[in-house]
């Protein structure tokens, strides 16, 4: 039930890899990591390949991150989403608001 958040920053490009379950327990940990990154107004790419579970608490964290990034003039991309995660963004309508992808646009990682 742990979550692992790995951050690699190259000037204005930030790559974040998340592994584990995002729920009411781990969402605050994730938020704490993402808020300072979003505040930099950087281009944030978040890989969700190793996220095995996520519910509305996770959606809330990404909505918060998205709002902060927009405010600071940066960008947010969620990548490598499983079918399950895409469905979650789809049924909540967030798919058309936040940039999500089943693939990674950064090429080979």
């Amino acid at each position: 039930m742990n979550i692992n958040v790995d951050v690699k920053q190259n000037e204005n490009d930030i790559q974040v890899n998340i592994a584990g379950e995002i729920d009411v327990y781990s969402a605050p940990v994730l938020r704490e990591k993402l808020v300072p990154l979003a505040e930099q107004g950087a281009d944030l790419r978040i890989c969700l390949k190793d996220v095995s579970y996520m519910d509305s608490t996770g959606l809330g964290v990404f909505v918060g991150t998205f709002k902060m990034v927009k405010k600071q003039g940066g960008s947010l991309k969620l990548e490598n989403l499983s079918e399950r995660l895409i469905r979650l963004f789809d049924i909540t309508g967030l798919k058309d608001i936040i940039d999500i992808s089943a693939k990674s646009e950064g090429g080979v990682q």
Binding site: S56, V63, F66, K67, K71, T92, G93, D96, I97
Partner: peptide, 25 residues
């Protein structure tokens, strides 16, 4: 309750409130 539509502005997006909608769906 959600869901969101593309006409929602960024400011209208809330970090909570989707839980009940997901249960229902």
């Amino acid at each position: 309750l959600g869901p969101y539509t593309p006409s929602h502005t960024v400011d209208q997006l809330s970090e909570g409130g989707l839980g009940l909608y997901l249960m229902e769906t």
